[in-house]
Amino acid sequence: MLEIKNLQVDLEEEEKTILKGVDLKIGEGEVHAIMGPNGSGKSTTSYVLSGKDGYEVTGGSATLDGADLLDMEPEERAAAGLFLAFQYPVEIPGVGNMTFLRTAVNAQRKARGEEELSAGDFLKLVREKAKALKIDADMLKRPVNVGFSGGEKKRNEILQMAMLEPKMCVLDETDSGLDVDAMKLVAEGVNALRDGKRSFLVITHYQRLLDHIKPDVVHIMADGKIVKSGGPELALEVENNGYADILAEVA
C-alpha cells in the first residue's frame, strides 16, 4: 500500500533538515502508529505525503500502490486514495460544509473517471455517515469548521474520510484537544472504516488513542528517523517509561 523509502526532507524557508531518511512500509489493511517526541518529524511526514508547500524533498521516495506520490499535486494524491486528517482542521468562512464535501467527493470521482454523485444520492450518503458520527444537520449546513468545537472539528475530519473512502488514511494527532468521550467517538468512526483493505497511519503523542484504535505496528520516531518498530506493546512502554529509555537504547 504505502511505501516510504529513505525519505529526506528540508524546510524550504530555512536551511533545516527535518526528515533524515524515513523508511516505512504499510501493507493492505494494516494499522501503523508513529509515536515520538515533539519535533521528531511526525507531522512533517504527514504533510510531505499529502503535498503541502514549504518542504523540499532532497532524497528518497514515497509511493502509494506503486504510484509516485511525491510527483503529484495534493488533489491528485487525494484522488489516488490518500487522506490526511488534520491536526488543526482549517476554518473556511463562506464555504458551506455540505458544498465542500460534495465538491470534494465529486472532484475525486471525476479525477478517477467515475460518474459524479447526484445531489440526492450525495445527501442520502452524507446523512447516513454523519449520523454515525453524531454530526447534526446544523453542522453540515454551517461553514466548514467555523465555530466548531475541537471535538466537532475532528469528527468533521472523520466524516470527510468516511465520505471520500480513501485507501490510505493518515491521522495527524487526531486525539489532540479531545476529551475522552470525543476521542472514543472519533476512534469508533475510524474503526468503522477498517475493512481489512483500508490502511491507516496514526500519528500520536499518547498511547491512549491506541487503546481505541488498535495498531498492528508501532514506530518510534526521533530526530527525523524511525528509530524503533514493534508491536502494540511498544506504545505501552512509551506510556510507562517515556521516550528517554528507548532513545538511549537505540543511540
Binding site: K52, E73, E75, L84, P89, I92, V95, T103, A107, L164
Partner: peptide, 21 residues
C-alpha cells in the same frame, strides 16, 4: 491546501474561496 488535500483541484479551490469572499 486543506481544500486541495480533499481532492479539489487548485483552481476550483481558489474559486470556492473567491466566491466565499
Amino acid at each position: 491546501f486543506y481544500l486541495t488535500s480533499r481532492g479539489i483541484p487548485r483552481q476550483e479551490a481558489q474559486d470556492m474561496l473567491v466566491l466565499a469572499f
